[in-house]
């Protein structure tokens, strides 16, 4: 065999290529873990609401799993969730341990719910902790909005086309209320019944960070008339009120829109450390007032 150096080099090169391929393929790992969870163990949803009539609170805790957890049988062993939920008022140190329950949802599946009951104090910061038996925990904090010192500014009643009576209200320092309810205290001067009319998120923000909306007094009076089954001119309300729910500062979706496509992102509208989800709080602003004489005159009582 006449083997020139060049041919020898070619043979060596070919062999080296093969060995390189085999070596590279053999040494490189083919396994992959497509789950990349940096210690996020629970998803938490719920909120505290300042409500003088209802002190109960609930949160849903969902374990973050590699396989979707759908419990259809209350006897399912997964129904016993390894989690302890506590809340602490960071201003007072008052702590509550929430009671777990596996409860049936509207679609027939079961969810891990934790319940507790206590007064929610405006301006206080609460911390919710969900702790696993191994000590790993997820937590979230919320500061209950404190809508104190807000004095609504009322415009003069306006009589529009067809005799419709409206009145504009401006709420200083209320940038974006979640919803507004107008309360009509229906009855005589000494005994009234509060009757709510929902306004939802009607209104517009003002330039100085407030909120402005219009109360449709005569329209609402017609609705109350229908609800009560009495003639309109007999629906009298010497006083009115406002009930406004305010969300905590963290409860602000991107660009102010609750868009499912955006908010479904795990990091969107999420304040849970070591987990996913959102735990917020709602503050309540309430204000009652006697009807101005001019409005009563326009309404005929």
């Amino acid at each position: 065999m006449n083997r020139s150096p060049l041919r020898a080099r070619a043979a060596v090169g070919a062999a080296a290529l093969l060995l390189l391929a085999i070596g590279a393929a053999a040494c490189d790992d083919t396994l992959i873990d497509p789950f990349d969870n940096d210690g996020r163990i629970y998803t938490v949803y719920g909120f505290l609401e300042e409500d003088f009539e209802d002190l109960r609170h609930v949160v849903r805790v969902i374990p973050v799993t590699r396989i979707p957890e759908v419990i259809t049988d209350p006897a399912d062993p997964r129904g016993d969730l390894d989690a302890v939920v506590t809340s602490t008022d960071l201003a007072t140190g008052e702590t509550h341990r929430w009671t777990p329950a596996l409860e049936r949802l509207d679609d027939g599946t079961y969810a891990h719910l934790y319940r507790s009951a206590f007064f929610v104090r405006r301006g206080h910061t609460y911390r919710l902790e969900v702790t696993r038996s191994d000590g790993r925990r997820a937590w979230a904090e919320t500061t209950v909005p404190s809508p104190s010192g807000i004095e609504p500014v009322f415009g003069a009643p306006v009589v529009g086309p067809g005799g419709a009576i409206t009145q504009e209200v401006t709420l200083p320092r209320v940038a974006s209320p979640w919803d507004v309810t107008v309360i009509y205290h229906v009855g005589g001067d000494f005994s009234t019944t509060p009757m709510p009319v929902a306004y939802g998120r009607e209104g517009t923000p003002t330039d100085d960070g407030g909120w402005r909306f219009t109360i449709h007094v005569s329209r609402d009076r017609g609705r109350l008339s229908a609800r009560l089954g009495t003639p309109v001119d007999q629906v009298r309300f010497p006083a009115m009120g406002l009930k406004i729910r305010l969300l905590d500062d963290q409860w602000t979706p991107p660009e102010g829109v609750f868009d499912p496509e955006v908010l479904a992102q795990p990091g969107a509208l999420s304040n849970v450390e070591n987990g996913y989800g959102f735990w917020g709080s709602i503050g309540l602003f309430q204000h009652d007032w006697q009807l101005a004489p001019e409005l009563r005159t326009l309404l005929g009582f």
Partner: peptide, 28 residues
């Protein structure tokens, strides 16, 4: 990659997490 599966709620004050089943989610 995925952080795992959970359930997602469109979290507004109107949501009753004790009744609403939410939506199965991949935590991408």
């Amino acid at each position: 990659s995925s952080g795992g599966f959970d359930v997602w709620h469109l979290m507004t004050p109107d949501v009753d997490v004790a009744r609403d089943p939410g939506v199965l989610r991949v935590a991408y």
